[in-house]
């Protein structure tokens, strides 16, 4: 995908995350894009590494800055403690109009991810994002081993939360196989 095609998908992702109740800050978008690329195989072309708050792409971070500068997205500061949200910018409708077919092609994957992650806060996204990264690196690991590895990578995550994250990832991996093209 080229820059504007990626931007089209990210704008749609932000829009639908918000529709599903997400705060849609940069961290939320990073994790949702990771699921979109890794789990549902939308070829955004970002490289994700395990970083602060779980999987993170420096290229996506730079793209988000360029998209804000281009008026495709903008930050909305909505009060203390949660960080700024991303919302559609004034130029976004032009993009949507130009790439309607591209959006249609990937809409089921975007909706799949947003339905499942939209209600999560950043702490939960960090856990499930890290669990998915572990699971993708070692597809044969059992849930309990994924949870152990999450705890090793993120020492502040509790056993219960790590187990929940591993279980969630196993479930959505199964659903993705069954439901997505």
């Amino acid at each position: 995908m080229d820059r504007l095609e990626r931007a089209t998908i990210i704008v749609e992702l932000v829009k639908r995350l918000r529709a599903h109740g997400s705060w849609a800050g940069e961290t939320h978008v990073q994790k949702a894009a990771y699921f979109l690329e890794t789990l549902t195989k939308v070829p955004l072309g970002y490289e994700f590494i395990l970083y602060r708050y779980g999987p993170f792409s420096f290229e996506l971070r730079d793209d988000l800055a360029a998209m804000r500068a281009d008026g495709l997205l903008e930050f909305r500061f909505q009060g203390p403690s949660y960080g700024p949200s991303l919302v559609m910018g004034e130029s976004a409708p032009v993009l949507e109009k130009t790439f309607t077919r591209l959006t249609e092609r990937y809409i089921s994957q975007i909706e799949f991810v947003c339905t499942r992650l939209g209600s999560m806060g950043v702490e939960e996204l960090e856990r499930v994002g890290t669990a998915l990264l572990v699971s993708q690196q070692s597809p044969d690991l059992a849930d309990t081993s994924v949870a152990e590895r999450v705890r090793h990578l993120k020492p502040h995550v509790t056993e219960v939360d790590a187990a929940r994250a591993a279980h969630f990832v196993a479930k959505v991996e199964q659903e993705a196989r069954e439901q997505l093209p």
Partner: peptide, 22 residues
């Protein structure tokens, strides 16, 4: 070329009463 602005800067601040805020 692109460079990120201030709202993309994400670092914690410890206030005088000890709480940590964005």
């Amino acid at each position: 070329s692109t460079m990120r602005g201030g709202l993309a800067e994400d670092f914690p601040v410890r206030t005088s009463n000890g709480t940590v805020v964005p």
